[in-house]
Every structure is written in structure tokens, then in C-alpha cells.
Amino acid sequence: MSEAQQNTNGAERSLSLEEIFEQRIANDEKIEPKDWMPEKYRKTHIRQISQHAHSEIVGMLPEGNWITRAPSLRRKVALLAKVQDEAGHGLYLYSACETLGISREELYEQLHSGKAKYSSIFNYPTITWADMGAIGWLVDGAAIINQVPLCNTSYGPYARAMIRVCKEESFHQRQGFEIMMTLCNGTEVQKQMAQDALNRWWWPALMMLGPTDDVSVHTEQSMKWKLKRKTNDELRQQFIDQTVPQADILGLTVPDPDLKWNEETGHYDFGEIDWDEFWQVVKGHGPCNKERMNARVGAWERGTWVRDAAMAYAEKQQNKKENQAKAV
């Protein structure tokens, strides 16, 4: 066989691998870590899964801010458990990401250097107890809308992680709504606290569903790989349609004067989102970007000697075992 033929055959083989791969995705088969996958698929998944994992652990911070001040023991325990769930989500999402051939250290490095992004919503401050309710209700609510379709995404480890994540998120959302409900059934001060939280979190929650379809850069490819099933604008509309009646139940006013039910479309019309604010926060200039990064980098750096010690100890124990084995 001549060299030219070999090259041609080689090219054919790689082409057919890709075809088989696309076929499998079209048939709703799961792609597993050891399966062949195009480099772009691997990279896109590392980007998205790690971004998701980073969001979970950065997302621990705004809520962690209220653990020591939670107003009752029941709320304190629920909040601690919720933040712990987020750490757990981070853990299995990092593990899912590691199956694509990248280490947790590298992923942290990308987060700490600013190369990797996390959900911008966590760059907003939690300044009252009602924010614990609003985050559960709105932020987890928007997250679920983003994430439920991912339970059927093509990459097996991610899809399986998301099934568990979504179950817990929907529990968190109910818990958040229940906090809001308690406030809204409470005193005037508590109602004001709830309304103020809705005022501050409403628009950032809408922004969580991502930029509008005309500027979203990843949508087309992601739809093909089932990393996405609906466009950002469709998801946003779904979130609004679902959440506005809940605000009505709470007796709160959604801070959008243009919000109104549209009989013809069967959806709510809503006002203009301030995309300048969105991009400002995404680019690192939100109210708490620096605090969040400092907290993450700080925890990691302060933990270096602890992790080193754990490694050193494990090595000593291993050596002891080996020496004992030799002695026998």
C-alpha cells in the first residue's frame, strides 16, 4: 500500500468515526468517557461542565454569608444542608469533568486565574435574610430551567450527575419559595424585606438564562450535541411564565412595569433587560466579583499547607506499609 493510500484510508477512518459519533448522538445514545469523541466536543464539555461546577462552589459563598445569622435553628440547618448540597454538586460535576482528561487542580487554576467563568448571578450581594428566599425561589428556579434538559444530554457522566443535581435543586427551590411565603405572611417589615429581595434579584435571575439568541455564540453547536434543547430566549420566557403567577401568590410585585399577560401569544410580555449590566458583571465588574474570587483563591491558598500535609502523611503511611511488608 502506498503512503498516499494510507493517508486516504486514515482520513476515511477518522471521517467515519465522526459520522458514527454524530449518529450515536442523533439516536440519543450516551457518549461515555472511553468512547471516541471529537476534540471540540471534549473541549466544549470541559468548558460547560467546569463552568457549572465552578458556579456551584462560588454559589456557596452568597448563601454561606447567612449561615451564622440564620433567624431560627430550623432555617440554619436547612441553609447549611443546602450549601452542603452545592458542595456535593461541585464534587460530582468536577468528577464528571475529570473523566474528560483534565484534573481538578487544572480546573481550579482556570477558575482562580479568571480563565473559566461561573454564573454571574453569584456576583450579587446577599444583604438581607430574604435573599436566602429569593435565591432559592428565583436563582434555583432559573437554574432548574437551564438544567432539566441536561438530564438527557449526550455525555453520560454529565447527564447522570444532572439527574441528581436537578432533584436537589427542585427541593431547594421549594425551600426558597417557602422562606418567601413565610415572610409574605409575616409582619410589614418582613413583607418589605421580601419585596426588596425580589426587586434586586428579578433582573439578574432573568439574565441567568443567558444572552439573547441573536448574540449567543454557542447555541447552535450545543443544540446539536443536546447540551441545549431550547434557546436562551425560550428558556427565559418559560421562567417568566412560570414565576409571575408565583409572585402573585406571594402578593409581591415583579419590578417590571412592562410586564403583562399577552392573550394572543399565551405568554407574558416583559420589559427590556439591561444587557450592559449583564456584560459588566460577566467581565468582572459586578458588585461582588472581587470578593467572590478573593474568597475562593484565599480558601485555596490557605489550604495549601493542609493539602500538602495530607499528601505527606499518606506517603509516610504507604512507606510504613511497604517496609512492614518487606520485614515480613
Binding site: 462552589i57 456557596m60 459563598l61 454561606g64 449561615i67 451564622t68 435553628l73 440554619k76 440547618v77 447549611l80 444542608a81 450549601v83 452542603q84 458542595a87 456535593g88 461541585g90 464534587l91 468536577y94 474568597a295 484565599g298 480558601a299 485555596w300 490557605r302 489550604g303 495549601t304 493542609v306 493539602r307
Partner: peptide
């Protein structure tokens, strides 16, 4: 509980939160 989210690793963070939850 003060440490939740600030531990030296995700695993120790989860474990310390567990202990805190048990105690509460």
C-alpha cells in the same frame, strides 16, 4: 458553620458541614 464554603478542600468542607449539621 462559619467555615462552610471556605475549607481547604471540597471534601473537608462537606465533612465539617456534616459535623456542624449533626451538632445543630
Amino acid at each position: 458553620g462559619e467555615l462552610c464554603g471556605h475549607g481547604p478542600s471540597l471534601e473537608t468542607d462537606i465533612a465539617c458541614t456534616n459535623i456542624s449539621l449533626d451538632l445543630f
